[in-house]
């Protein structure tokens, strides 16, 4: 690990003042991804500002919404009765990720800021990676692409975002609250992560001088009927090949009034299209409805050498997630 200076911030103002605008400074929260990348030599910040003790870990209720402090641990969010009862899809997504040890360390803000697990990004012995070295190329496009994107990729980067939590947050219309030198602002979760385009090294709308302070879940009463389905190579502690977050508003006859549907493991950000959700309205949550929604959601999908299976897997996972969600009591 390269040498760095360490300081601990006691409040948000101090953290922002200490942070400045430099690109060689990182905020340290749970550290589960950042320290790992520093050991790998992917990240080599000159300064770390420890924000882990800032008073931003509360989960609070207001006006039917729930505000989750950016430093709430993944395990605390997943265990919280408000989240489990009102937004079970979020608790399930969190519990499907990582391990108990890592969930005890990892924070909500850090989860959003985690980097891709693309083999060619995390291993600096590969010279080509437009995220690590802009302009150097993309080794993944000619490499093993089993875990890579099928939607929204570019010739510069075909990595996926690894977060389960973000997929559930996308389905729930969550809002990310950030603090910067000029004050606070809100960023819709669906706008928070970017597609790679020509600048895959710029992964989020967060500016270097800004700090995530909270994530707010707007009221969504029908989210009590929601579910997260994660498909992966082993039963536990693995990233999603494909995942689906679903929330359904059903009438008394089991017909869908409204739906939320987001896909993970397929793109550089959670993948959600309102058009696909509209395709579910007025139908029963069955295989035909799922196939119709999948047709819309997967429009324009482009698989690479090893990941065409994700197209079939995503279609089947959508159907499964829909039918399971509809069957919830």
């Amino acid at each position: 690990m390269r040498a760095f200076t360490y300081s601990r911030a006691e409040d948000v103002g101090a953290a922002l003042a200490a942070r400045g605008h430099g690109d060689d400074v990182r905020f340290l929260a749970g550290g589960t991804n950042l320290l790992d990348l520093m050991k790998q030599g992917v990240e080599a910040p000159a300064r770390l500002i420890d924000v882990s003790r800032l008073p931003l870990a509360d989960i609070t209720e207001g006006d039917g919404s729930v505000r989750i402090g950016a430093l709430a641990r993944n395990s605390d969010v997943a265990s919280h009765p408000l989240i489990r009862r009102r937004y079970p899809v979020l608790a399930e997504a969190l519990l499907s990720g990582a391990t108990a040890q890592l969930r005890n360390m990892a924070t909500v803000g850090g989860n959003l800021m985690q980097r891709t697990r693309c083999y060619y990004f995390v291993d600096p012995t590969f010279a080509e990676c437009n995220k690590r070295r802009p302009g150097s190329g993309c080794a993944a496009r000619e490499g093993r692409t089993r875990i890579h994107a099928i939607l929204g990729a570019s010739e510069h980067c075909i990595a996926t975002h690894p977060s389960d939590m973000a997929v559930a947050l996308a389905a729930l219309d969550a809002v990310v609250e950030v603090a910067g030198p000029a004050g606070t602002r809100d960023i819709a979760l669906m706008d928070f992560h970017r597609l790679p385009g020509t600048t895959p090294e710029v992964e989020t709308e967060l500016r270097p001088s800004e700090l995530i302070t909270a994530v707010t879940l707007p009221p969504l009463p029908f989210a009590r009927r929601s579910h997260y389905l994660k498909v992966r190579d082993r039963e536990s502690y693995a990233f999603a090949l494909v995942s689906v977050a679903v929330a359904l508003d059903l009438d008394g006859a089991g017909v869908i009034r409204q739906a939320r549907l987001a896909l993970g493991g397929v793109a550089h950000k959670p993948w959600r299209l309102e058009e696909a959700e509209r395709a579910l309205r007025g139908r029963r949550a069955d295989a035909e409805a799922g196939a119709a929604a999948a047709d819309v959601l997967l429009q324009g999908a482009r698989p690479y050498r090893d990941n065409a299976f994700k197209l079939t897997l995503a279609r089947r996972a959508i159907v499964r997630a829909l039918t399971v969600t509809a069957s919830l009591g």
Binding site: A3, T5, Y6, S7, R8, A14, A17
Partner: peptide, 18 residues
Amino acid sequence: MKPIMGGNEAVTSAEAAA
């Protein structure tokens, strides 16, 4: 703020601005 290599330094807003 004056970071110290390996130091364990706490700062507050007031101190950071000083």
